[in-house]
Amino acid sequence: MMTRFLHSEFFHNYKHSSSAVIGSTLMLGFAFAVIVGPLLVAQNPYDIASLDLMDSYKPPLWLEGGDPRFPLGTDGQGRDVWASILYGARISVFIGLVAMIASCTIGTFLGLVAGFYGGIVDSVIMRIADIQLSFPSILIALFLMSAVGTGVDKVLIALTAVGWVVYARTVRGSTLSEIEKEYVQAAKVAGLPNHKIIRKHVLPNVLTPLIVIATIQVGTFVLIEASLSFLGVGVPITQPSLGLLIKNGFDVLFSGLWWTSVFPGIAIMILVFGINLFGDFLRDELNPRLK
């Protein structure tokens, strides 16, 4: 299995695409930092007992007054910015991944149903999608958050409500072209019930384009979540994501205490950049028309 993969065209193209290698390295590095990172830092930034106000607003290590315990400096509560980033990235990535999985599942299901059954079901689902697409996604999320309140679960709901549309539209389109193919007719002729035809024949044949969408969407979701948190309707202060770290630092940014918001910003940038690079590679690789 492994040797087959190593000799596949996919892996060969991967090795020879610098954007794919850089992108996936950034992603893997981030995944590593998110999973084991918090174990490597001494301080738990959420454990108030471990904080010392005497440590507040220490600059990064290489500046005058830097403290070797806090390589990227500290914020107003004496929180280590580096540790905050590692913990915050956990929340950001968790939200991005879970919201992507939820969007993908719901959107794919609705797209399959709309494409396969057509008629009124199709019209209703697709009009809802159209309406949703005509609003900026941040706005929809803002509306939802103001209606249902804030919290990680609310952020997930808001992101999913925004994210399903792209899957539904893509899947519906591919479904429409798949069900015209004779193997779907053949499955009907063989007497297979509709739910089996959808699950076993249509679904596997419409999945490929979703891989690209899902990859890129994780990055998009991290950004939207950061914007929401920056606007103050995202995650609660007790579970600061990268976006909330930026917001907290932004308040003192112009006092010259730039490191509290710039470093979390760089972290988001690296994550989204890596995801997009890898996503672009997947798009080229999985789209037969670009070959």
Binding site: K181, E182, Y183, Q185, A186, A187, K188, V189, A190, G191, L192, P193, K200, H201, P204, N205
Partner: peptide
């Protein structure tokens, strides 16, 4: 009808390139 399809009446299609599912 679903019982009849495949069991009592079956069908052979025109294009063998598309009448089999490529993924199975």
């Amino acid at each position: 009808l679903r019982e009849i399809r495949g069991r009592e009446i079956s069908m052979v299609f025109q294009d063998p390139m598309t009448s089999l599912n490529p993924l199975h």
